[in-house]
C-alpha cells in the first residue's frame, strides 16, 4: 500500500511538472526603422572583424542565443519568447543594419545593449560574427 501511495505521488508530480513547462512563443514581427534597415556595415568581414565579434557574442549573447546561435543557450529555456535561430535563411535575409538594430536596442525580453556595447566597431563586429552561423 505504501508503495502504491508513493507511485501515485510520483505520477501526480510528473503530470504537474508537465503542465508547468511553458511553450515558448515565436517572436512577433519586429519593424526596424528605415534608417537602420539601410545602414551600411562599415566593418570589413575579415578574420579580425569576426574575431572581435566572437568575443562580444560569447560575453553578452551566448547565454541565451547559444554557442551556434540556435537559441539554445543555458538561459534560453527560462524565456517566454524563442530567442531565434541565427542559422536560418530567414535570419540571414535581414540586412546588417536590421541585425545590428535588434542586437543593440532590443525589445521585451531582449535587453538593450547600448551601454554595455558602447563601441560602434564592436556592434558591427558582432553582426559579422552572427553572419558566420549561416548553414
Amino acid at each position: 500500500m505504501k508503495k502504491m501511495k508513493f507511485l501515485i505521488l510520483i505520477a501526480i508530480a510528473t503530470i504537474g511538472f508537465a503542465f508547468t513547462v511553458q511553450q515558448q512563443k515565436k517572436a512577433a514581427v519586429w519593424e526596424v526603422p528605415a534608417e537602420y534597415k539601410s545602414m551600411e556595415n562599415p566593418l570589413a568581414k575579415d578574420a579580425a572583424g569576426v574575431n572581435t565579434g566572437k568575443m562580444v557574442y560569447m560575453k553578452h549573447c551566448r547565454s541565451c542565443h547559444g554557442n551556434a546561435g540556435l537559441g539554445d543557450g543555458p538561459k534560453a529555456a527560462r524565456l517566454k519568447t524563442f530567442p531565434g535561430d541565427f542559422a536560418s535563411a530567414e535570419f540571414h535575409a535581414q540586412t546588417d543594419g536590421e541585425i545590428m538594430y535588434k542586437s543593440i536596442f532590443g525589445r521585451d525580453e531582449m535587453p538593450n545593449y547600448e551601454t554595455k556595447i558602447p563601441s560602434k566597431k564592436e556592434r558591427w563586429a558582432v553582426v559579422n560574427y552572427m553572419r558566420t552561423f549561416k548553414k
Binding site: 562599415p42 566593418l43 568575443m55 556595447i117 558602447p118 563601441s119 560602434k120 566597431k121 564592436e122
Partner: peptide
C-alpha cells in the same frame, strides 16, 4: 583609416 579611428577602444 576608417570611421572607427577616433573611437575609444572597448574592453
Amino acid at each position: 583609416e576608417d570611421e572607427f579611428a577616433n573611437d575609444p577602444v572597448a574592453g
